[in-house]
Design a protein around this nucleic acid. Structure first.
Lengths: 170, 170
DNA sequence: TTGGAATGTCAACAAGACTGACGTAAACTG
DNA sequence: CAGTTTACGTCAGTCTTGTTGACATTCCAA
């Protein structure tokens, strides 16, 4: 992890000698990497009148078609007013369809339209290309570690949401 | 990385069988983890009249004392006007000191004051604690992989800035 | 020495987040 | 069945943080 000083001894689950400096580097790595992570979709959306908020909504609607507004709210971690502004625009532009629930008519189930899926593809193609390139450079073991650390960094609620999406267990 | 389907064969630097699904999981991991990553400092700053932008400025001024505004601009990736608002507040509140450059009087060199360092500590203590916990859960090999993937995900400019800070080579 | 480039500041504006209040419809519950 | 809770939408107002545009100061090179 870091050269130039006496190699720290890691023993089992007792991971020691994590200097503030090492942690700080991890923090900065997160900061700079997240910028890269969002750069490509941001560029694509810059032309349109959409932003990162729209991208997030589109991503998760695509990921869990038929999800309810409340569900999306919990995943995105924003207020319903904030999400509503975004959804209103996407629905008005015909990228998202909102269907009243069959069993519970209070609920609205959200789906991407053909156009919505098209935009989603453009956005996630760009993001996946970068992720794929990074994965290739770093190698498979690094990828596994990457995922482990990220998962450990999440809040409990978010980890639950993440795992649920990952495993497709509603 | 993923169970439930035929184990993909990874061969040397030729990392294959990266399904869209696997990449998508990486993308979502980044999204959820970044939320956790910023949660603690955000909570601390919520009381004060500061936000994430102030945190970022404080972090990097602490990291590279005497840095110029232009320098900070490049690292943070915002416009100078945007940074200026943040700096103005921090200077007015006595957390940051701005000294006119000796050799080039157009430049302002930025330093944290005693109070600035105190807030920096509070913020980064919280963030480091989470990072440390995540590192401990994931283990040292995972941490190495984590850092590798993040570095590979950065834009070239950001990777340069990151390495420069990490290695302390101005 | 003068005009352009670089550095930084001030002012006005836009996006996107937030809170608070309110309304409607549907579901649940004693 | 009446009252309460839940799910969703909306209006209004505020705050943070990003943007452009205009401008002052300083440096440097033709």
């Amino acid at each position: 992890m870091s050269e130039g000083r006496a190699a720290p001894v890691y023993s089992g689950e007792n991971l020691l000698f994590l200097t503030d400096e090492q942690l700080r580097q991890g923090i900065e790595a997160m900061f700079f990497a997240y910028r890269g992570f969002t750069a490509d979709p941001d560029r694509i959306l810059a032309d349109q009148s959409y932003g990162r908020a729209h991208h997030r909504a589109i991503h998760f609607i695509n990921r869990a078609p038929g999800t309810t507004v409340n569900n999306l709210l919990a995943i995105l971690g924003v207020t319903k007013q904030s999400l509503n502004r975004v959804l209103r625009a996407l629905i008005a532009d015909g990228l998202v369809e909102s269907r009243v629930g069959n069993v519970d008519k209070r609920e609205r189930h959200l789906y991407l339209t053909e156009d919505g899926r098209a935009l989603e593809s453009r956005l996630s193609d760009a993001q996946r290309a970068r992720m794929r390139a990074a994965y290739r450079v770093a190698g498979p073991e690094a990828v596994a570690g990457f995922r482990q650390v990220l998962e450990a960094m999440m809040d409990t609620d978010m980890r639950r949401a993440y795992v649920r999406l990952r495993d497709g267990t509603p």
